[in-house]
Amino acid sequence: MREGPSISSLLEHPWLTVRVQLALGAIFVAAAIPKIADPPSFAHMIYNYRLVPGGVVNLAALWIPWVELLAGLALILGVWRRGAAFVVGLLLLVFIAAVGINLARGHAIDCGCFDVRDAGKTETERLADMRWVVLRDAGMLLLVGQLLFATRGGRPQPEPEAGRRQAGSPGSPDPVP
């Protein structure tokens, strides 16, 4: 009798891994572009978080968007996948902590995640947005977890063809013993 696929084999399935990679990559590239286009506005956003010393605000505003962009591109192109996933995971942890601390303080801020302009929202709207941002980033962190799981131990680059074979397409050898 054939056993069904295990959770582990589903999680490391190349079909899923490729899509997670592309989704995370696209999200981080989209998040980086407005910040790179307007560093002073992003510096203003970072300042509003009240977490970074004044002398470091500008350096963070210049550097973080490029880390996002390069990590996002690496995921899209499928190069240095594991390193890029680590960086993306680290960024998400920092973002969750930054927004979470301000939520705990009751300090309403614009997230500055995808748009660095002042959104002109009320305090209540901003706090609601911040709760959503924490949830959204936690969801993305799960995606990063999937990527790290699927690429553990130097597993090879997923190929769509390999994905079809693993799914047991007709005419292909069944990889499941």
């Binding site: 790179i36 286009a37 307007d38 560093p39 002073p40 510096a43 300042y47 004044g54 002398g55 470091v56 605000v57 500008n58 350096l59 505003a61 210049l62 550097w63 968007p65 490029w66 880390v67 962009l69 390069l70």
Partner: peptide, 25 residues
């Protein structure tokens, strides 16, 4: 690589997009 890109982009940016290296906030 991100640090190098950040430095280059800030050097090439126009005055209204450029940030001082050390924040004076």
């Amino acid at each position: 690589a991100a640090a190098v890109c950040a430095i280059v982009s800030n050097v090439l940016a126009g005055p209204q997009r450029r940030l001082a290296w050390a924040g004076t906030i």
